[in-house]
Amino acid sequence: MAKSDCKNILNLIPLYIDNMLSEEETDIVARHLETCEHCRNEYEFIATLTKETKKLNEIEVSSDFHKNLMAKAEQKARTKKSRKFILLRRAGAGVCAAAVIALCVVTYNGLNKHQESTNPDEYISPTSGVSQNPVKLTNEAPNTQSDVSAPKTQSTPIETPQKVAETPQEAPEAPSGGGSSAAPVEEACPSAISLDDTVSTYTVATVTTNEDNRDAIEQILSRYEKDETGYKVADINPLLLQLAEMGATVETRTDSTVTQNYIILE
């Protein structure tokens, strides 16, 4: 038996054990093993090592592994939810702002139309509406629309913000007056713009964090004025997103009893 044969056979034995050789190679190895004791010993040794490897003792999972992992996963889930909620509120605020602007335009044009209709010299186009300026028979320049800042008072409630909040699965539950971050549908536009002509609502965010992040978060918040309620933050959403990205848990609610947005660090 040539030594080179045995060397080649040795190289084939590991895959022969797993039946991963071609038919031809399997046949060559099988016939060689019938006649070569040295290679038979090698085959048995490698096969035994493979078998013994399968039987190596397993280590046990430590008793708090699962609990610690789930705690971290839940923290991740909360952070994800806060981020989604903040982005949703931003989208909602955007929609609200657009709706309010549209309302202003309607109101403004409606008022214009009313004023113009009392002047018998003026012609009002039967198709004039939100986007059209009336054609005047006087020499005055047509009115241009300006100052579409949202008025605080209005007569018609806007329904759009309700649709924004209802669609996603993470839709918050209706609170009972200034509840938690499960803010209700009508509170999707919290920041200083009220759709109810009697009540202004602001955001109060409660931020909790672990000891590792507390110092960094306190440092950020120290830039803002603080009173007995908390830190006063005018443009609150970007800051809440930043804190959530740092690993803090953010819970928000709208509050009609405060006069601006607050962050409370617990």
């Binding site: 054990i17 040794f45 490698i46 035994t48």
Partner: peptide, 24 residues
Amino acid sequence: VKSRLSRARLALRSILKENRELFT
């Protein structure tokens, strides 16, 4: 995968061949 596994098993054999008697 075939090539690496094959060499891995031969490497184990090489490391443990001095203690072969424990594995028979």
